[in-house]
Design a protein around this nucleic acid. Sequence first.
RNA 1: GGCCCCAUCGUCUAGCGGUCCAGGACAUCGCCCUUUCACGGCGAAGGUCGCGGGUUCGAAUCCCGCUGGGGUCACCA
Length: 568
Amino acid sequence: MSLSPPAPSGAPVSGLPSPFSAPQAHPASRLYIPPAPHYEYTPLFIKFHAVYKPETHKQTNFNLMQTSLGQRVRTRFAPSPTGYLHVGGLRTALYNYLYARKAGGDFIVRIEDTDQARKVEGADKDLLKTLELSGIVPDESIEHGGNFGPYVQSQRLDIYKQYCQQLLEQNHAYYCFATAEELEENRQLQQKQGMQPKYNRKWLPQHMGGDMPQGEIQKKLDEGAPYVIRMKVPDYISIMFEDIVRGPVEFDSATVDDQVLMKSDGFPTYHFASVIDDHLMEITHIIRGEEWLSSMPKHLLLYEFFGWEPPKFAHLPLLLNPDRSKLSKRQGDVAVEDFLNKGYSSEAILNFVALLGWNEGEGTEQEIYSLDQLIEKFSLERVGKAGAVFNIDKLNWIEKQYIKDRPTEKIISVIKPLLQEELGKKETEMDTERIQSDEYLAQVIELMRERVNFESEFVTFCDYFYFDPEEYDPAAVKKRWKQDTNEVLAEFITVLEDTDDFSADNLEAVLKAFVEPREKKPAFLIHPLRILNSGVGFGPSLYHMLEVLGKQTVIRRLKKGLERNVSK
RNA sequence: GGCCCCAUCGUCUAGCGGUCCAGGACAUCGCCCUUUCACGGCGAAGGUCGCGGGUUCGAAUCCCGCUGGGGUCACCA
């Protein structure tokens, strides 16, 4: 199988030193021949713009937030409707949102549905819904309207066609009739040779420096053969730009493939559509994941072709799995919906995700931020460069912090429906009206606030406030039951029956007064009382728990427990 | 493999040439509070600042190289 090395290249066909037009040594395929060592390298050909100079970097945010035209700041989140909202996507959306809000600008959500095959019906609306549930509300979107619509790319096809035509006319783009098989074959051949897979420019027309005669192209066009349109990436120029989080980044155009702009189904590719839309929608700052960094040269080139001023770019570090690979579904939940369904609150999720890659810096010890505080304090210069592992423990802790401070009424409104659902599942011997009252729930909440991980646990984890226990934790029973426990307990029940004041203070006094002459410690009764009333060996202050449950319930549960003879 | 990005306790991070033999948070462990659990308080353990060279009177901080990790190389986004 050997492919001869490239023949010593003769003089360039045209004035352009294009290696692509070098004579081919082997007929098997028209491979991309690596450039001769003496190619002409033109650094800084593209005049891209330094957004800020190192000196101004340290200055106020305000400078950074001004675009060079002093326009209104507009950011965008551009998901493709292929499924759920990813936590990484949520963070990207959040940073865009925070940045726009802080600058008093607009935050736009645009649906990038140029891949008809991967499109999932309804995913666009779901994405938006989850975003809003998380607390991020766009100013413009398919649902919110705006003056820059439509906000779905599939409804902007005419626009892309028009701009593509322009590129064709300006010789920045060309038709390509290569088949998928052909491309694949070429790719594999190149890979086998250890080369970067790249389109071989077979269909690059002669007048653009290639060697396909215009007649051939016209013939195919007349036949109605399927085609794509590719951009012609200039040879050997240096493309550089200043990334807000990463600083200067430079690419050599020789490593950039002739990107497909329009697919054979008439849809644009992401690269083409997003550049046009970002420009038309007057997006001033593109804040997106680092996975887009390597397509910067393509995008920048397009701005250059059109003569548009590019927006500022900020490429965010990736969110990582515990093994430090890009956060993926395989290693746990990644859908925002899943977290919401598990009971995490939107505030906690947002708070957590905001801190993954951003911090206020310099001596701050704050970990809990409201959305408003984030808006006030956020800045892109304080976004880190390194990827961050998604650490669920920290999220759990943040969630708890929020539960501690959440107003009782707010919690009640959430748990009431949950409670009703539980009550529908099984019978309770308690007064259903009472246990559903706000007053009762408020008491439960105060007792359990610091012991619960999620709001939903005010019902599930605290079920003994609504149902008599059916089982008693054997380990707890074993630990707390002594020889004469049942006996003493039986006696104490009769005391309780004569007690009308079931306030925590009084119960404590009663129990102490009962226990003292019998030469027992309070704990002798406290633990069994807890177990018979809750089924478990842990929980809130016993006296307060009994107070909330009420005399009737407590006595019923104690008698039941004695009958069941739990220690046996 | 080519190109690009990144690199401070297990994890998230502070640190932008001296005040750092590196500070905080989560997780872990211990003590205190306490009838239990949780909360809270106090404390411990945990980093040769990936490695090697420079620059400098002085480097986690600047430069170069290496190593490691990640991303990307589609008519997917």
